[in-house]
Design a protein around this nucleic acid. Sequence first.
RNA 1: GGGUAGGUUGAGCAGGUGGUGAGCUCCGCUGACUGUAGAUCAGCCGUCUUCGACUGUGGGGGUUCGAUUCCCUCCCUGCCCA
Length: 380
Amino acid sequence: MAGPLSFSSRATGIGRARLGTLATPHGTIDTPQFMPVGTQGTVKSLTPGDLRAAGTQVLLGNTYHLSLRPGHERIARLGGLHRFMAWDGPILTDSGGFQVFSLAHLRRVDEDGVTFASHLDGSPQRLTPERAIEIQEALGSDIAMAFDQLVDATLPDAEVADAMQRTHRWAARCLAARTRPDQALFGIIQGGVDATLRRQSAAAIAALPFEGIAVGGLSVGESKRQMADTLDVVAEALGDDPRPRYLMGVGSPLDFFGAVKRGIDLFDCVLPTRVARNGQLWTSLGKLNLRNARFLDDPDPLDPACACETCRTFSRAYLAHLFRAEELLAYRLASLHNVTYTLDLMRRLRSSLVEGRFQALHEAVAAHYAGTGTSAVSTG
RNA sequence: GGGUAGGUUGAGCAGGUGGUGAGCUCCGCUGACUGUAGAUCAGCCGUCUUCGACUGUGGGGGUUCGAUUCCCUCCCUGCCCA
């Protein structure tokens, strides 16, 4: 193939949902696909073996955290991120743009870039589009992300527009800064929840020679309706653009359905692993909180429909005990299950697109997850 | 037997030397978590008809307008002496 990526997809006739294959230097990814988040060179508590057993096809790593510790130069000296963390599958690295947002009180934004106080020791850190690319090239990820600026969508339109336009200028600088022919680069659409801005941003990003297009700035507090509407606007603006589309930071079991229907191919989210560490397990029966007293005497497997090590081996009572005792095994077993569940769900979602059962699967999952905190992207 | 220090909501404590003790930390119960400063955070945690009210400082009695506080007595626990 000519570029660092090769993506082929086909329409399914179900909304804008599509099925695809994304070939990277470290392996091929079936889409729609979910990427577990391994911010610091590890998906918390899971080994690469665990991740493979869970069906992981691609991981996410983080520019900001890894450049601070252990340092991207050190990782480069040690053979790159794949070798360093012993994961030989595809890796996508986030650019650090999200930290501009989530560490807002420790930063200062100017046209050239962002100055942070390190969350580790308070030392001043500088991130620019060029530096974000330099770091990601040192890490050697298969897919790098452009350095963007996302803002609170409830800010005045002028500020959202400002950040969006800066994101466009930074996107061009990221493209100009790249030097590795074997690393793909995705641009990121911003624009908050304003339809006009989103349309403008989608057009601006799509006009640039990125290998993929991401939708950023969502699932940061806006309503499900706003997320769905924004995805509709973006999908319309992108038209039949053939590049892979990645919805950043999503999501929950039901979120996937609404987004896939709106043409999304890739997802990442900390939710499956974070909630797992806090005792919330996603199962074929819906959400279960293993810290609840009712599980202390429950001899059943966590999820009778799951084949992961956790469900094959242990009882709910045992898991409930591990959480109470704050035993480390609780976090691994719970994370292993939630990642397995999420990737299984994506696999079933892909099958349902092939077999014309998408809506039925969506409804079946909704029956178990409706009315919970992890609600759906509206299908209206 | 004598002396001494104590007895506060499941546990451990704080406080209170006559004028509203429901305050803290555990434990416990529940909820939240969406490009990970998160194995975290929040609420509840005596009873009730729970935006409030009532009860509660080992038991009993006394003094007082009023006692967790002062007095008497009993019970229980730690330590010291016999």
